[in-house]
Simulated scan of single mutants.
Amino acid sequence: MASTQERDEPEHVTQDATERVGEDMAGTLEQAARDLLDRGEEGVEHTLRLVVRGAIQTVPHVEEAGISLVEDGRRVESYVPSSDIVQQIDELQNDLGEGPCLDSIWHEQRTVVDDMAEADHRWPRYARAARELGIGSLMSFQLFAERGSAGALNLYASQPHVFDESTADAGRLFAAQAALVLHGAQRIQGLHTALASRDVIGQAKGILMERFGVGQAQAFSMLVESSQNTNMKLAKVAEWLAGEVEKKGAHRRS
């Protein structure tokens, strides 16, 4: 809740502060994007770490932060938490099946708890346990929720009544930008997977071309037909074929 002094500040002061937060966010996320491209396969985890660190540094009153991701189910995984407390909070929500991060991931785009002492009616077991861990207030922002995958950026403070509407807006803007960076990181990771699949498919095509004396197009058609007949993805069929050839080669050498 904002104090009288804060409400009486000139409008241009608030605007200047908001602009500074925006500049800090932009700089942090630009650095995350650059580091992501430099680090390759390590990029996703490194980017998440930068997002958490940047949120603590740029969003007013935030003391702890973490990103919760869910893949193929409802279990929350805590990624690059800023402290053991954040890790415990995510595990707590898994154990209890309730909490603001779960709500943000599955039901709401933004969850703000102004005072954890007043949240017993919503999450009776979680609120009590969070207070015992020293959490006074929190904000949770949905990063994405699609195709069985979901995530949230969670920001914590030890004191209640520190996250007013302007602070929540800053957190929302940061979360929106963080979601874009995370999406880019996951997309790059997917490209690495696609390249690996392409390599193994090429290897499998070469095996079929040599074994049956066929061309590239015919070898690829053989892989596609095998994929359809076995109800396996094309890359999995190629992996199996390459693996079988490698096993036979190792057996002959021994």
Rank of each mutant, 00 (worst) to 15 (best):
M1G: 13
T4K: 13
E6L: 11
E6K: 13
D8H: 15
E9T: 05
E9F: 14
P10I: 15
P10M: 11
V13C: 04
T14E: 10
Q15M: 08
E19I: 15
R20E: 12
G22I: 06
D24Y: 02
G27W: 11
L29F: 01
L29N: 13
E30G: 14
Q31H: 14
A33C: 05
A33K: 10
R34G: 12
G43S: 13
V44A: 12
E45M: 10
H46M: 07
H46G: 05
T47F: 05
T47W: 02
A55P: 02
I56H: 05
I56Y: 00
Q57R: 12
V59Q: 04
V62C: 09
V62D: 12
G66Y: 06
G66M: 14
G66R: 01
I67G: 07
E71P: 03
G73L: 11
R75M: 13
E77N: 10
V80G: 07
V80Q: 14
P81K: 12
S83V: 06
D90H: 12
L92A: 00
L96W: 03
P100V: 05
P100Q: 04
C101M: 08
L102Q: 00
D103C: 01
S104E: 03
S104W: 02
S104D: 01
H107P: 00
Q109M: 06
R110S: 07
D115I: 02
D115Y: 00
M116C: 07
E118N: 02
A119T: 02
A119Y: 04
A119E: 04
D120N: 03
D120C: 03
R125L: 02
R125P: 00
A130F: 00
L133M: 02
L133V: 04
G134F: 00
F141I: 00
F141H: 07
A145Y: 08
A145V: 08
A145R: 04
S149Y: 11
G151D: 05
Y156I: 07
A157M: 00
S158R: 13
P160Q: 05
P160V: 03
H161R: 14
D164G: 06
D164T: 13
D164A: 14
E165Q: 07
S166I: 08
A170H: 14
G171R: 05
R172S: 10
L173V: 15
L173Q: 15
L173A: 10
F174Y: 15
A176W: 09
L180D: 08
I188E: 11
L191Q: 14
H192P: 10
H192I: 14
T193Y: 09
A194Y: 05
A196Y: 07
D199C: 13
D199R: 15
Q203E: 11
M209G: 13
R211D: 06
R211Q: 08
A219P: 03
S221C: 08
S221L: 11
M222R: 06
M222P: 09
M222F: 09
V224C: 09
S226I: 02
S227C: 09
N229I: 13
T230R: 12
N231W: 06
M232Q: 10
K233A: 11
K236D: 14
A238R: 06
W240I: 15
L241W: 06
G243R: 04
G243L: 04
V245S: 04
E246V: 12
K247H: 10
K247L: 11
A250F: 12
A250T: 13
A250P: 08
H251E: 14
R253G: 05
S254M: 08
